[in-house]
Design a protein around this nucleic acid. Structure first.
Length: 723
DNA sequence: GAGCACTGC
């Protein structure tokens, strides 16, 4: 045990050394609080809106005067002045005393209170990083970890990567000197594998805990456990106002420390009656705001790309018809899949006399902040992923957002000045129809990965693991069952040698099984590519509306007999031959961003091969070997053609080949699929057929049945019923 | 014959 521990630590050091050669990036999108703007005064609301008298947020605290630019000597002093002006500053001593007195402290603070940047610095100043101990601060997002670290490094007057650094996937900007580590929550979770007791940390601060990401939720359980046998470890849980009582209860009634935020008031208005067509209502409302309201940009929340494009078209169309009767209105879409140059447009300042309307997905709710927004228009819907553990099917559906989410959206109007939020639903609906909070991710997602990680941390009794909100029973069962079928767990529910290796790979268990199997079939080069391409969950192919025919032709040109996995391999190989060129992507209607991500994933996996004892080897065009390795991981995902579509072997579910698949026309008798998604129908995405008839009957059918019989043993072990 | 919210390791 100890040996592998040390080995891992050495590997980690080597990894850091490698990474250090690359200079740390300065993030492009800062999270810095906005400078005070001269906001317009509040006027009477629009006719169709009813003001909610109780929705007034308290008046803002005094904004600090910005740092004075001229002399360098003054700069250090002005940095300290800005630090002192943050809402958290007056609480410094009281906060440090509370941390000294209690092992776990819940910190309740709004955005802009300075908790993320200041508290770790206070702890540093107080000596919590003496004797080589470190402070970790986790963030749900990569950009946040990077930009906060950059800001703290500036405030402390050190080079980013020295005393202050960040650690995110694909990029480790820390060194031996680093004592303040900002990192993504997933990164800290991975660190448990090499340091299960977090021995090198004196303080762990979990920031943005209210977001309840899957990784944050797992961290809670693990950290609570570590804290029990490491009484000197300090745990800070930082969250917005929401749910702090729950965190406190979870951590054995840990005290809650409140820090006021700095926000401008936002007036909230509701419609008097429900809207039948919210897209149309949105467009009309934007124009109404534009015509009747004082200057200030507008932010509209819609659910997805399609809706956003439609809304933007409608808005531009109507503006064109109104012509010079209204002032200029810049209509700008923003969503994650939008090409970066288009995304950058929303950050350009609005020209004088004009007004900007940004039509966004949830990306504008937390991930990015647009300066100058005074008006928010919220129809109250979002797309949400859900997971059905009985069928193993994921779906993405439009659902009403939670109250928490609605308030977060409204808050986007009050960042630079007093703002207004127009909700396209009634006050009654807000009160009675919206859930308080969004269902935490842990209850809406498949958990194969997480279960494998927990098992490898020695947590055997998952049913009784201390979850803040436990996932559905069935989700855990399905995960255990699949891990058992993959040979990652033995009949006693213990991790096997191969399971231990699988846990080292940051991909789904079925993918890691496939990678391990590539050793046997000597095709790890190809399998790494397939795995990397499969884990890019965006579609690889770009299909702009005005070039549908070209795009579809380009896609078909990549088709190879043998199914979608080989098509993905083909795309990647050709791209690599082009020298990883963006031009090549453009010409072939392939998404450059997705490919770059696939390359990052592939490189990371390649770097981990040694650790899981898989050698690099190529099948030299013998694709049967690639297919066999895929089967080793995905035999669990098979389906047989019946008269009424395909029937999955395990769940006897009726499913269909996705129309984008290369096998859509072929309809082979047996199929292996990567995943099931429920959209307009139950679809299998990324499928491949058997390479020969015998494989389908004997290998697939026989093997699956043999595995399922073994499930009885699993049932005995877990003392549960799996069927 | 369909259609991709957002993150993260």
């Amino acid at each position: 045990m100890r040996d592998t521990h040390r080995e891992r630590e050495r590997e980690r050091q080597r990894y850091r050394q490698r990474e250090k050669q690359a200079p740390c990036r300065e993030p492009d999108m800062g999270l810095d609080p906005g400078s005070p703007g001269s906001g317009p005064g509040l006027k009477a609301a629009l006719n169709c809106w009813k003001a909610d008298p109780e929705a007034h947020t308290p008046p803002p605290l005094q904004e600090p005067s910005g740092p004075s630019p001229p002399s360098q000597a003054q700069q250090k002093e002005s940095v300290q002045a800005v630090r002192r002006s943050l809402p958290v500053f007056p609480f410094r001593e009281e906060l440090l005393a509370a941390i000294a007195d209690h092992q776990v402290l819940i910190i309740e603070g709004e955005t802009g209170s300075g908790k993320t940047t200041q508290i770790p610095q206070y702890l540093f100043e107080e000596g919590y990083t003496k004797k080589g101990m470190k402070i970790a601060c986790t963030q749900p997002r990569r950009v946040a970890a990077m930009s906060v670290a950059a800001r703290v490094a500036r405030e402390m007057g050190v080079k980013l990567g020295n005393e202050v650094g960040y650690s995110i996937r694909f990029e480790d900007c820390t060194s031996e000197r680093t004592v303040l580590r900002y990192m993504t929550d997933g990164m800290l979770l991975r660190e448990f594998l090499s340091e299960p007791d977090l021995a090198s940390y004196s303080v762990v601060m979990v920031d943005e805990a209210h977001e309840r990401t899957l990784h944050t939720d797992i961290l809670f359980g693990l950290i609570k456990d570590v804290a029990r046998f490491r009484p000197e470890l300090k745990v800070l849980v930082a969250s917005a106002t929401l749910d702090t009582a729950r965190f406190s209860t979870f951590f054995d009634d840990a005290p809650v420390f409140r820090i006021p935020g700095r926000r401008f008031p936002v007036d909230i208005f509701y419609t008097k009656a429900p809207e039948a067509d919210y897209l149309e209502a949105c467009v009309v409302s934007v124009l109404q705001i534009h015509v009747t309201q004082p200057p200030g940009d507008i932010l509209v929340f819609l659910t997805g790309q399609e809706e956003i494009e439609a809304a933007c078209e409608m808005l531009q169309d109507r503006c064109r018809r109104l012509g010079s009767k209204i002032r200029e209105l810049l209509v700008l879409p923003i969503y994650a899949n939008l090409p970066s140059d288009m995304q950058a447009r929303i950050f350009q300042p609005t020209p004088p006399g004009a007004r900007k309307v940004v039509v966004a997905t949830n990306i504008a709710e937390t991930s990015l902040t647009i300066e100058g927004i005074i008006y928010v228009l919220d129809p109250g819907f979002c797309k949400q992923k859900s997971y059905n553990p009985r069928t193993g099917m994921e779906s993405l559906t439009v659902t009403p957002c939670s109250k928490a989410s609605a308030n977060q959206r409204a808050g986007r109007a009050g960042r630079v000045a007093a703002g207004k939020c127009f909700r396209l639903y009634t006050a009654w609906a807000y009160q009675h129809e919206l859930e308080e909070t969004t269902v935490p991710e842990i209850q809406r997602t498949s958990l194969g990965n997480v279960v494998l990680l927990l098992k490898s941390l020695g947590i055997h009794d998952l049913m009784h693991f201390d979850f803040l909100d436990p996932p559905p029973y069935e989700t855990l069962l399905l995960a255990l069952e699949q891990l058992y079928a993959l040979g990652a767990l033995n009949h006693l529910g213990e991790l096997t040698t191969s399971g231990r290796k699988m846990a080292e790979l940051p991909v789904d268990p079925m993918l890691s099984k496939m990678i391990l199997a590539s050793e046997k079939y000597s095709c790890s080069e190809e399998i790494l590519t397939v795995a990397a391409m499969l884990s890019v969950n965006n579609s690889i192919f770009y299909r702009p509306k005005d070039k549908v025919v070209h795009a579809d032709n380009a896609r078909v040109n990549f088709f190879l007999p043998g199914g979608d996995h080989l098509v993905l391999l083909n795309v990647y190989t050709q791209w690599a031959e082009s020298g990883y060129s963006s031009q090549w992507c453009y010409e072939n209607f392939v998404q450059f961003r997705s490919m770059r991500r696939a390359r990052d994933v592939r490189e990371q996996l390649e770097g981990l091969l040694e650790r899981v004892e898989v050698g690099l080897s190529s099948c030299q065009g013998d694709y049967i070997r690639v297919r066999k390795a895929i089967t080793a991981g995905y035999f669990y995902h098979t389906a047989r053609l019946t008269r009424s579509g395909y029937r999955t072997v395990k769940q006897q579910q009726t499913v269909f080949i996705h129309p984008n698949s290369s096998l859509f026309e072929e309809q082979p008798r047996w199929l292996l699929y990567h995943e099931l998604v429920l959209t307009t129908k139950e679809f299998m995405r990324q499928v491949r057929g058997p390479s020969f008839a015998q494989e389908s009957e004997d290998v697939w059918g026989g093997r699956i049945l043999a595995r399922f019989n073994l499930l009885r043993l699993a049932e005995k072990q877990e003392n549960i019923n799996l069927r």
